[in-house]
Amino acid sequence: MSKRIDVTNLNVYYGKFRAVEDVTMTIEPRAVTAFIGPSGCGKSTFLRTLNRMHEVIPNAYVEGEVLMDGENLYGTGVDPVRVRRQIGMVFQRPNPFPTMSIKENVLAGITLNARRLSTKEKDEIVERSLRGANLWEEVKNRLGLPGSGLSGGQQQRLCIARAIAMQPDVILMDEPCSALDPISTLAIEDLIQELKQTYTVVIVTHNMQQAARVSDTTAFFNIAGTGSPGKLIEMGSTEKIFSTPDVKATEDYISGRFG
């Protein structure tokens, strides 16, 4: 289920503009890796290259390699649709499909595979996924109601349930708590701790306390200035990054001297 990701010399371009420069890193399975850094430093852009979601933007492309358990996601003949079915994603703002019920939202990805499932199998997937997202108890009596009727935090957990229903190898989270209140944030953070038992979790966050609380490994991204590409400055165990980082810029950012 859980897979390792090896990134080698990855550059991301929007047309002629280089947004991310020369990133090399290893993302460990069954662990939480956090990306931190100031706004515009390319951490979200980089995250999106891990499931090829950056290709949604016209003229965006990458150079370099992303290996998932040795398989290059950018190899010839690799279908981005297949990649995204194995690497789930949770977005900054909760985005359940408004025209679908809670149950249909959980099953949205499964139905794409056009597999014929019995009602019993579907019910099992819905319950397992919603339990996995710590949402089952709250919604089990209203599975037929629209997903948009839930609170923001519940909607975000519904999106996580939708992602884990696909039984992905990796879950990418792009600032999953930035639109949520502190209590909902706590619920998501607890959930992330459980998810890492099964999945490789990568999370982008602006909240350094959050990175310190949830992650095992932290990567710090930075830019020299507007118009220059984002770079990976330093990556290491969260404990080390938040206590004795090797690079001065990391220490300045962590301690709030800039950013």
Binding site: R85, N95, L112, M166
Partner: peptide, 9 residues
């Protein structure tokens, strides 16, 4: 919503 669908594959 478009991205939600695309991210599900």
């Amino acid at each position: 919503h478009e991205e939600a669908a695309l991210a599900l594959g």
